[in-house]
Simulated assay, not measured.
Amino acid sequence: MSSCDGQTKTSAARVLTQEELDRLGSERTLVSDFKQMKLEKEAQKNWDLFYKRNTTNFFKDRHWTTREFEELKACREFESQKLVLLEAGCGVGNCIFPLLEDDLNIFVYACDFSPRAVEFVKQNPLYCPERCCAFQCDLTKDDLMENVPEGSVDVVTLIFVLSAVHPDKMKLVLENINKVLKPGGIVLFRDYGLHDHAMLRFKSGNKLGENFYVRQDGTRSYFFSKEFLAELFEETGFQSVANDYVLRETVNKKEGLCVPRVFLQSKFTKPGQSQSS
């Protein structure tokens, strides 16, 4: 896949064609409760198998994070200040290793649902316990404070992670993150947006709920509207700093199509002492 155009930020959701509207409207049958419960129970196993199949080859290294999220540089008062980062849902480290290479004054906590993904992080030649602490964690139920001191993190990245969590449990993830984030700290979020091409491609029988689908491999994906996301964060004590759709066209070479991708890119802060006093 390559981009055939730049990306645009917009506050409005992508407008669907009539054909797309019809396709979404015709999908009314939801996956049975029994299968939904099985998917929830086997979520970790399914992600572990995903990493077993794809090892470290599926996602490209994300060298774009510092470009897109200037906070990673800007939220320090001086150059040599240590920045403590938590990557919630680190996968195999595509985001953290470019950051550790680029920036010597960063310490990263990195956790993932999949024990196999965490193993890949620890096996990376750039992994060094003085600068990085990787651990397995189910963000919906394992207390982050078992590995990360309370209120010690400057920046949390939540990149293509929350979409894999059942919507009923998303709030638990944010409450968990809130405990380890410093007052005044920031959450950098990027994930699938409403009406993304991937959402429109699901065949009949893959719908779990509103904007929530299951892929063939059993992993699940939610597609966020900015309103839903803002409400989720605000109800867990965060304040919105930025919350925009990112639209980009991507060429699917195999099908010779230019397809519309939609992501949601957002920043939320945990109110600091100074703001609340």
Rank of each mutant, 00 (worst) to 15 (best):
F268H: 03
K267G: 08
L208F: 11
D217K: 02
T269C: 12
D244C: 02
L257Y: 02
Q265I: 02
L208Y: 11
C258P: 03
F263A: 05
F223C: 07
R190K: 15
D244K: 04
V246N: 02
R220D: 14
A230G: 14
N211K: 05
L232M: 06
L188M: 13
Y213F: 12
G218Q: 09
V187M: 12
V214G: 11
F268D: 05
S266E: 07
V251N: 08
E227V: 10
Q216S: 15
L257N: 05
S225L: 04
R215T: 13
G256A: 08
Y245A: 11
N252Q: 13
V241Q: 14
Y245F: 15
V262S: 07
V259I: 14
T236Y: 04
V214Q: 15
R190W: 04
K203P: 12
S221N: 14
F223D: 03
L232V: 04
N252I: 05
E235N: 15
H197M: 01
D191C: 03
V246T: 00
G209T: 12
L208R: 12
G209V: 06
R201T: 09
S204F: 01
L200V: 07
Q216D: 15
N206A: 14
S240R: 11
Y245T: 08
F228N: 05
L247Q: 08
K254I: 08
D217Y: 02
F212Q: 07
F202L: 09
S225M: 09
K226W: 01
G193C: 06
E255K: 02
N243R: 04
P260A: 03
G193H: 01
